[in-house]
């Protein structure tokens, strides 16, 4: 495989290059070839250097607040030179709102302070391999919501509302000894509710109930290629609870992602084998 080439550039007059230098070194350590422009480069000089050096990506660093003007300039010049296949990412002192705006304008990604160099290099590698049509393509998003798990003290007490007022039906109630949980399945179209009752103290659901009380415990998304997807998430720096799929209640592979990723929501991925045989846990 051809080595990934990246141009790290300091647009504008800002002289703070600690970040740019640290990223350059980290990308080199990750096996990429890195060219650093040095300070005070105009967007024009940056684009020229990127084309001359035949890089796959440009990383822009600015801490002076000039990003809103200078980063889009680089994109514009790349388009004019018909070099928009070069991926542009950025970092620095960039407020969230500006980062979102820049990403909308075509900056592939803004990395804000505190992002680990590992996450950055993994992201860049993935994006470039994808752009080259090499390696594994980035997997498409989940196909839908498979189910929502609701933690309850007692299925018996929880059921009447779902049966008598929402007029849903119980498909089955099963015990999963490995998770020390009893699960009631209530289908709703292609989706279902799962009521989760702890079988013993100290089980995951019991601990959840102790901490937060009854309520939504997790949301499960239907996906394909679960193991590949877990690998991809890991490369992207997402924190996983399960690094390899385990068997869910329905006999299908599942894995949990750490709630930190989704702002406090526990997400489950389940590999639904085909639409007709939907089910899990």
């Amino acid at each position: 495989m051809e080595k990934i080439r990246v141009l790290i550039a300091k647009p504008g007059l800002d002289g703070h290059d600690r970040g740019a230098l640290v990223i350059s070194q980290a990308l080199r350590d990750a096996g990429m070839e890195v060219i650093y422009t040095g300070l005070r480069q105009s967007p024009k000089q940056i684009v020229k250097a990127a084309i001359q050096e035949d890089v796959d990506a440009i990383g822009l660093s600015s801490l002076s607040g000039a990003h809103n003007v200078l980063f889009p300039q680089v994109l514009k010049l790349l388009r004019e030179e018909q070099a928009e296949d070069i991926i542009v990412f950025g970092g620095g002192v960039i407020p969230l709102e500006d980062a979102q705006n820049l990403e909308k304008q075509g900056i592939k990604k803004i990395f804000t302070p505190g992002t680990s160099t590992k996450t950055i290099s993994a992201y860049i590698e993935q994006a470039i391999l994808e752009a080259r049509g090499q390696g594994d393509p980035l997997l498409a998003g989940p196909k839908g919501i498979d189910h929502v798990g609701i933690a309850v003290y007692s299925i018996e007490e929880a059921l009447p509302f779902y049966l008598n007022h929402l007029h849903l039906e119980v498909e089955k109630i099963v015990e999963v000894p490995s998770q020390k949980v009893k699960v009631a399945f209530l289908p709703l179209g292609n989706f279902k509710f799962e009521l989760l009752e702890p079988l013993t103290n100290g089980s995951p659901i019991a601990r959840f109930l102790e901490k937060k009380g009854e309520g939504i415990h997790h949301i499960a998304l239907s996906v394909s290629s679960l193991q590949d997807r877990l690998n991809q998430l890991k490369r992207e720096g997402v924190q996983l609870i399960d690094e390899t799929p385990k068997e869910g209640a329905g006999g299908y592979p599942i894995a949990f992602l750490h709630p930190k990723n989704a702002k406090g929501v526990l997400l489950e991925l389940c590999e639904t084998i085909d639409e007709a045989e939907k089910g899990d846990e």
Binding site: G12, L13, D14, G15, R40, S42, S64, G65, A66, H67, N68, V69, L70, Q73
Partner: peptide
């Protein structure tokens, strides 16, 4: 601001985006 610190007037092309920023 950076243009002042590097001896450029505010209307110099090098000052683009930097006037009054830091």
């Amino acid at each position: 601001d950076l243009p002042t610190q590097i001896g450029y007037d505010s209307d110099d092309p090098m000052s683009l985006g930097e006037v009054g920023k830091v």
